[in-house]
Amino acid sequence: MKLFSFIRSDLAAHDGDWGAQGFWALLVYRFGRWRYSVRPALLRKLFSLIYKVLYKLVQIVTGIELPCEVRLGKNFVIDHFGGIVISGYASFGDNCRIRNGVVVGLRRVDEPCAPQIGNNVDIGAGAKLLGNIRIGNNVAIGANAVVLCDVPDNHVAYGVPAVIKPRKVLACNQT
């Protein structure tokens, strides 16, 4: 079953730590996504009720708001819990990592457009990514950055408002 393979992958991404609050949020997220595939309508409604209770419980206990409408890639990691809000309109590629205090959401309530985030993106603590923007692949978002515009592949965004610079690649074994 696809649900269990996602859960195994999420657990591995959190280093096998069943106690990680980020894993709890992902567990409820995966259940919420899976319930849409249940065919008998009555059973789906029962699972929807269970999901809503679990979602609220995880939101209260962990401070992570991760609705099942978000599109997540593989190996999504929530490093530190607390104060994380992700809009249901957002999407993440594979191998993304976020930390506490991150907001990925709408810039304005009347614009239901949230960031579309690529693969291998590392988002620092307290960062805010808002609006209809695209974050490329292999991007690092600095702590407390406020990102309101697109960030190309292989760049770093830091500051308020975010300054965008190319990533410097350090060669190993420099002498």
Rank of each mutant, 00 (worst) to 15 (best):
I135A: 11
N137Y: 05
V121L: 12
R134V: 15
V139F: 01
N119I: 02
I141N: 05
L129N: 06
N144D: 13
K128R: 15
D122C: 05
A125I: 13
I141C: 07
A140D: 12
G126T: 01
L129V: 07
I117Q: 06
A140K: 15
V139M: 05
I123L: 06
G136P: 08
I123M: 03
N137G: 05
G118C: 11
V139C: 00
I133W: 04
A145E: 03
G142F: 04
V146P: 05
I141S: 01
N120C: 01
A140G: 04
N137M: 04
G131T: 12
N144I: 00
G126W: 06
G124Y: 02
N132S: 14
G118W: 10
N120S: 09
R134A: 14
K128A: 11
V121T: 12
A127E: 07
A125S: 15
G118H: 10
L130G: 06
I141L: 06
A127F: 09
A125N: 06
I133Q: 09
I133L: 14
I135F: 12
V121H: 09
D122E: 15
I141D: 02
R134Y: 07
A145Q: 03
A125Q: 13
I117S: 07
V139K: 02
A145L: 02
L130M: 15
A143V: 11
I141R: 03
A145D: 01
V146H: 03
I133P: 08
G118L: 11
V121M: 11
R134G: 04
G118E: 10
V139P: 05
V146Q: 00
G142S: 00
A145P: 01
I141P: 03
K128F: 03
A127H: 09
N137V: 03
A125P: 11
N132E: 14
V146C: 14
A140V: 15
N137W: 00
D122W: 14
G118K: 09
N137C: 06
I133G: 08
G126C: 06
A143I: 00
G118P: 10
G118R: 11
A140Q: 14
A140S: 15
G124L: 07
I133S: 08
G131S: 13
N120M: 01
G136C: 12
G126A: 01
G131Y: 10
G142I: 02
N120V: 01
I135T: 13
I123K: 01
V146N: 08
D122G: 00
L130R: 05
N119T: 13
N137Q: 07
R134E: 14
I135L: 13
L129C: 10
N138K: 05
